[in-house]
Design a protein around this nucleic acid. Structure first.
Length: 269
DNA sequence: ATGGTAGCAGGGCTA
């Protein structure tokens, strides 16, 4: 049984609900996890999803910023939200796939939106960067020992951990998202908990992988100065089932796009 | 510690 989970920083789910529907129609993932929905819960565009085949929806939003959501073709058993750093920011949601999901039943899905961290990579000068580092440390504490059972963690982690996750390793070493303080933290917490970076299983370095291209580039496709900020991790139980991770780069070229492209993890269960 | 563009909200913050 093929099972797919997509993740996409949509940068306003209300503004881009048509993009969501288009992607779902094209890709038909079993599950789509969204970040930066920028949408209070009472304004989530549920009506637009009716008839799409994605009737099982959980979300945690707030006004203007952040916000995460999980859209599923299969019933979801639970909805859980964690908060980090003593903030009410909507940066995490999780759910468990119900028995109707067949061999995927019981898989735990975690959807994360890690703080971007501002512009200056100095915890003393930039409170937003300090918050990002605190968040990563909290994530490490949450992961603790090894993750048990079948689980998938996806989201916009706002860190491009490897040399070939950015267009220029040297030029970005002092740029937030690729500084050693972030990349070492992310790799350490991932390794300690036992998560596997699914995208790099079948596409190892030095092949480049990007999932985000800045809005500020006048011609993002030609410049191709991307970064891999969006991730799909699997628990050790699922490592042998990974069949690939693909980036729907073309969606970055849609009219009024998100600055992130959707990323899809495929498993054979 | 540039400026470039984008979304929300309707100014300035966040990315």
């Amino acid at each position: 049984m093929r099972f797919t989970v997509s993740t996409w920083n949509i940068n306003s789910v209300r503004l881009r609900i048509d993009h969501v529907l288009r992607f779902l129609a094209e890709e038909r993932p079993d599950v789509l996890c969204l970040q930066e929905t920028k949408c209070p819960d009472d304004a989530f565009p549920l009506k637009a999803l009716r008839g799409s085949g994605y009737e099982h929806v959980v979300f945690a939003g707030q006004k203007g910023y952040n916000g995460v959501a999980i859209l599923s073709r299969h019933p979801l058993l639970t909805r859980a939200v964690m908060s980090f750093c003593e903030r009410a920011d909507a940066r995490h949601i999780s759910a468990v796939l119900g028995p109707e999901a067949g061999r995927a039943a019981g898989i735990v899905l975690h959807d994360f939106y890690v703080p971007a961290g501002g512009d200056v990579p100095d915890v003393g000068l930039n409170p937003k960067f300090a918050h990002k580092i605190d968040f990563l440390d909290a994530l490490r504490a949450w992961g603790g020992r090894r993750v048990s059972g079948p689980a998938i963690l996806v989201g916009d982690l706002n860190v491009a951990p490897l040399e070939h996750d950015v267009w220029s390793h040297k030029q970005l070493l002092d740029v937030v998202s690729h500084t050693p303080i972030e990349t070492e933290r992310l790799e350490t917490l991932r390794g300690e908990a036992g998560w596997i970076d699914a995208a790099r299983l079948l596409t190892p370095e030095p092949e480049k992988i990007y999932t985000w291209w800045s809005y500020r580039s006048p011609d993002w496709a030609a410049a191709n100065k991307g970064r891999r900020l969006d991730h799909a991790w699997v628990s050790p139980d699922l490592a042998g089932t990974v069949r690939g991770v693909t980036v729907a780069r073309h969606a970055r070229g849609w009219d009024r796009p998100s600055d992130h492209a959707p990323v899809t993890l495929a498993l054979e269960l």
